[in-house]
Computed example of a mutant assay.
Amino acid sequence: MCFKESEEYNKINVAKQAILNTITVAGELALISPKALIICGSGLGGIAKILKGKTIKIPYADIPGFCQSTVPGHIGCLLFGRIGENMVPVVCMVGRLHYYEGYNFEQVTFPVRVAASMGIKEMIATNASGGVNETYKAGDLMVISDHINIPGLAGSHPLRGSNLSHFGPRFPAMSDAYDLELRILFFKAVRKLGINRTIHEGIYTYCCGPSFETTAECRMIRMLGGDSVGMSTVPEIIVARHAGMRCFGLSLITNSVLSTPPPSAKEAISKGLTAMEMLKNGDEKTSHAEVLREGQNASDDVNIIMEAFVNTL
């Protein structure tokens, strides 16, 4: 084992022990090894509201090795509790970490490895994303069946560097990244609830951010087969799968991406039009406020579905 691996294992163990100590002091020993890790995406932190019984909140600042979430809508804490009639023990990451915040992939995925070291076997990752598929509308949900990792294809990969062989192999398969059984359980739960919200199943495309995609990039993603696009989830999924965790991903579609080419300056000159005249019907822009707003609008349905889904685990 090289020094880098040894150092990383030590950091993970120190963080795990700090979490276990807090749970022990709180007297909730049943929460020491939760059934699932739930990552709450932008605008979806309300998932933590469905926890039942006594909960234990641990701010990231109190966990050695954890970085601070800096994005609006991401509180930055672990919240331990139980979900559903079966009182399934879970831990929620209320606020995730992103590469665009300036953290490297090792820092972004560190909480996932800590969760794996605690014996957690399943991970549920939620996010807010833009709808690339032209049939997707704001407020729809998308169960992730596969992903396109654009940074990874370009060489920026969360498993780059020394392999932590204690967790998984050097070359892990990703063809089964999003567990079929978990997806089936989710759709069964939705069917029983009878919720009137469109739910798709499709391919999530990961881009680093923090800028939203250009119209040309959106057209490229559509050509590649992506159904939605966002700035998270894939690094955590890859590291979780490397550690042998079963994964489920859910995207809230907050907007339809803008894919119409920008106005042409050459056309403006030929028609004698000003920039303002050319832009009057094409000045729509995506914003983070829009993401949070759609998350708030969908939160009640998402919470109900998640409670029913997690209750089956």
Rank of each mutant, 00 (worst) to 15 (best):
R293Y: 12
N127W: 02
G209M: 02
M278N: 05
A268M: 14
P89G: 08
L313R: 10
I148M: 09
A275G: 11
C67D: 11
F105K: 01
E122Y: 06
T233W: 00
L250I: 03
S42P: 02
M118G: 07
N86P: 09
R113G: 03
L250T: 05
V114K: 10
A48G: 10
I83W: 00
D301H: 13
G295W: 06
G249R: 02
C208W: 02
R82Q: 13
I120V: 15
I203F: 08
M87W: 08
C67T: 07
M1I: 08
N10R: 15
L258Q: 12
L20E: 08
L29G: 03
F309Y: 13
G209R: 04
M231D: 06
H157V: 00
I50P: 04
M1H: 10
S156M: 12
G102D: 13
L180D: 06
I269M: 14
G282F: 10
F80R: 11
S256D: 08
L252N: 03
Y204L: 01
L258E: 14
G53T: 09
H147A: 06
T274M: 11
L141E: 07
E101L: 03
A240L: 06
P235N: 09
K188S: 13
T214N: 11
N311H: 11
V88W: 07
K35E: 11
Q68K: 14
E122C: 09
Q296M: 08
S211A: 13
L20S: 07
Y178I: 07
I19Y: 10
V25N: 11
D62H: 12
I238D: 07
A128H: 05
G76P: 06
F186C: 05
H74I: 07
T254F: 00
I305G: 09
N149M: 07
Y206M: 06
V108Q: 05
L164S: 10
G46V: 12
E181V: 13
C208R: 15
G230H: 01
V190A: 14
A189H: 02
P72I: 08
G194L: 14
G53V: 11
R183T: 05
T24E: 15
